[in-house]
């Protein structure tokens, strides 16, 4: 009879626990939106954080709750936003593709170096001690943006400036955050007129430091006063849409090439 005791005790315990478990399952059930799973599946799973959330899953949850835009994933682009729209049962609308653009033309030929820089060869390290170039606003050329890019879309050009591959760029914004000098920003891919300088130096100082610096001469402003203004010794495009295509040749007369059309090399087409 002794062998019955353990069988009975264990059997009873098992029964007790199974009742407890099934009760807990009923009571503590978490309702998960099936949409989250569906959205998560169509996302690229790059977990880049370009949408502003900590990963693709977090973005999917935010979309399902209606907190994030359907077009919020910069990596997936239009394709993915269409799919998400279908899951959510709405229209995606037209997303404008943006790409990272470098606002400096201070390449190795144009920008004057201060001296021999012997420090650590990253932009951040050079920036905190004043940089290696005379211009304190321009590109340092050590490629923090190149290392930050998770999509291999940005490379160091031959002349020491980063070149963005517009096709690969997903506008995740990692390079924008990595640049200690804030010379990269995200712009619609169709916008091809840009100011390629961020120097706030006076004309004489800017010219001394870099051949391609904006010298605030105002030629572009006179050509197109409705869209371009001078702010702190620098030409700024206030409203790109107002630039009349016919006026572009006049804007391109910039003596230092600090404003103009983006070149083929800079757009990585060449």
């Amino acid at each position: 009879m002794q062998f019955l005791i353990p069988i009975l005790t264990l059997g009873l315990l098992g029964l007790l626990f199974s009742i407890g478990l099934s009760f807990a399952y009923q009571k503590l059930k978490v309702e998960e939106d099936p949409k989250v799973e569906a959205i998560s599946e169509v996302l690229p799973q790059a977990n880049c954080g370009g949408c502003g959330y900590s990963g693709c899953r977090a973005f999917a949850e935010a979309v399902a709750k209606g907190k994030a835009e359907i077009t919020g994933c910069p990596v997936g682009g239009e394709d993915v936003s269409q799919k998400i729209a279908r899951i959510m049962g709405t229209e995606a609308g037209k997303a404008i593709k943006k790409v990272a653009r470098v606002h400096c033309r201070g390449n190795t030929k144009a920008a004057r170096e201060k001296g021999i820089y012997l420090g650590i060869t990253t932009c951040h390290a050079a920036h905190i001690i004043g940089g290696n170039k005379e211009c304190v606003y321009g590109c340092l050329g050590f490629g923090d943006c190149v290392r930050a890019c998770p999509f291999d879309a940005i490379h160091m050009g031959e002349e020491g400036l980063p070149v963005v591959d517009a096709d690969k760029c997903t506008a995740c914004g990692k390079c924008v955050d990595a640049c200690p000098r804030d010379i990269i920003d995200l712009q619609p891919v169709s916008q091809n007129i840009m100011v390629f300088c961020r120097s706030l130096d006076s004309a004489a100082a800017a010219k001394k430091a870099c051949k391609n610096a904006c010298i605030s001469c105002g030629i572009c402003v006179r050509a197109c006063p409705e869209a371009i203004v001078l702010e702190n010794n620098l030409a700024v495009i206030k409203d790109y849409k107002k630039i009349d295509p016919e006026k572009i040749p006049a804007i391109e007369k910039c003596p230092t090439d600090a404003i103009g059309r983006i070149t083929k090399e800079e757009n990585h087409e060449g």
């Binding site: 420090g119 650590i120 990253t122 951040h124 390290a125 905190i128 001690i129």
Partner: peptide
């Protein structure tokens, strides 16, 4: 190794 420069990078960040 440029230890101090790296430490300064960290401090600055």
């Amino acid at each position: 190794i440029p230890l101090v420069h790296w430490i300064r990078v960290g401090k600055n960040a």
